Amino acid sequence: MSGATHTVAVLAGGAATRLDGRDKGLVPLGGRPLVDWVLAAPGLRRAPEDPAPPLLIVANRNLEVYARYAATIHDVLPGQRGPLAGIAAALAACRTDWLLSVPVDCPLPPPDLAVRLLDAPVGAAIRVAHDGVRRQPLFALYARALAAPAAAAAAEQTGVHAWQDAMGAVEVDFGDRRVHFDNLNTPSDFAAFRERFAPHA
């Protein structure tokens, strides 16, 4: 991991109410748990020849299972505080200059996610993907120095989108990668993904 510019945090702490409360990251997809798809995605690395980035999984249950895949942490704030709490926890644990966040329910994130965000305008402490229609707030790059502001905002139950705006986030165009932001929330989403993508992934 020496020389890595960023750490990757997979946000896996949601309640998954549309999956009857099942732990979404551990639901099998093509014989592998969903979290394994995300961690193996090439877009998490800036370039194939670069050092593999350190990996974190932010989860609030089944931590011992997630720990088989990568270093695992949990929200430090009590209760369901939303994804900003997971981002704050990851920033506090981050030891690189940048933290790249991705949600666990998106098995095929853009193949150039890290490089586009890292190469976005210098000076922006938050760089967030925009799919051509809307912002994708969980696909974002954060300066490590934002750990304390993120924790304070999460404690006030501020939404990720609103906090990103307050911090002067810059949106990065991924309009040509829109299909890569498809996320899986329901059993029918999983079935549709298997039919459309799994045979070719």
Rank of each mutant, 00 (worst) to 15 (best):
residue 2 S to W: 12
residue 3 G to Q: 09
residue 4 A to F: 03
residue 5 T to V: 14
residue 6 H to P: 11
residue 6 H to R: 04
residue 8 V to F: 02
residue 8 V to Y: 01
residue 10 V to N: 08
residue 10 V to K: 06
residue 10 V to P: 09
residue 14 G to M: 03
residue 15 A to I: 03
residue 16 A to K: 06
residue 18 R to F: 01
residue 18 R to V: 06
residue 18 R to T: 11
residue 20 D to Y: 11
residue 21 G to N: 13
residue 22 R to I: 14
residue 23 D to S: 15
residue 23 D to P: 15
residue 27 V to A: 03
residue 29 L to E: 13
residue 29 L to W: 14
residue 30 G to N: 13
residue 33 P to S: 11
residue 33 P to G: 10
residue 37 W to N: 12
residue 38 V to Y: 13
residue 39 L to E: 06
residue 39 L to Y: 09
residue 40 A to N: 14
residue 41 A to C: 04
residue 44 L to W: 05
residue 44 L to C: 05
residue 46 R to E: 06
residue 49 E to F: 01
residue 49 E to A: 13
residue 49 E to I: 09
residue 51 P to D: 11
residue 56 L to N: 11
residue 57 I to G: 07
residue 59 A to D: 04
residue 60 N to C: 10
residue 61 R to F: 04
residue 62 N to K: 02
residue 63 L to E: 15
residue 63 L to P: 08
residue 66 Y to D: 00
residue 66 Y to W: 00
residue 67 A to C: 00
residue 67 A to S: 04
residue 71 A to P: 00
residue 71 A to M: 00
residue 72 T to G: 01
residue 73 I to V: 04
residue 75 D to I: 00
residue 76 V to C: 00
residue 77 L to Q: 06
residue 78 P to I: 00
residue 80 Q to C: 01
residue 82 G to A: 07
residue 84 L to V: 03
residue 87 I to F: 05
residue 87 I to E: 11
residue 88 A to Y: 07
residue 90 A to E: 12
residue 90 A to N: 12
residue 93 A to F: 05
residue 94 C to V: 10
residue 97 D to Y: 10
residue 97 D to C: 08
residue 98 W to P: 01
residue 104 V to P: 06
residue 105 D to A: 14
residue 105 D to M: 12
residue 108 L to A: 14
residue 109 P to A: 07
residue 109 P to Q: 07
residue 114 A to H: 10
residue 116 R to L: 04
residue 117 L to M: 12
residue 118 L to Y: 12
residue 118 L to C: 12
residue 119 D to N: 10
residue 119 D to S: 11
residue 119 D to F: 10
residue 120 A to I: 09
residue 123 G to M: 09
residue 126 I to R: 04
residue 127 R to M: 10
residue 127 R to T: 05
residue 129 A to G: 05
residue 133 V to G: 04
residue 134 R to Y: 14
residue 135 R to W: 01
residue 135 R to L: 00
residue 136 Q to P: 05
residue 137 P to L: 07
residue 137 P to R: 07
residue 140 A to H: 03
residue 142 Y to I: 10
residue 143 A to P: 01
residue 143 A to N: 08
residue 144 R to Y: 10
residue 144 R to S: 03
residue 145 A to Y: 00
residue 146 L to Q: 05
residue 147 A to Y: 12
residue 149 P to M: 06
residue 153 A to K: 02
residue 154 A to F: 07
residue 156 E to C: 08
residue 159 G to C: 03
residue 160 V to C: 06
residue 161 H to C: 09
residue 164 Q to D: 09
residue 165 D to V: 01
residue 165 D to N: 09
residue 166 A to T: 03
residue 168 G to Y: 08
residue 170 V to W: 12
residue 171 E to R: 15
residue 174 F to W: 15
residue 178 R to Q: 08
residue 179 V to W: 15
residue 181 F to M: 05
residue 183 N to M: 10
residue 183 N to W: 13
residue 186 T to N: 11
residue 188 S to F: 05
residue 190 F to E: 08
residue 191 A to S: 07
residue 192 A to S: 11
residue 193 F to E: 07
residue 197 F to R: 09
residue 198 A to Q: 15
residue 199 P to F: 13
residue 200 H to L: 07
residue 200 H to W: 03
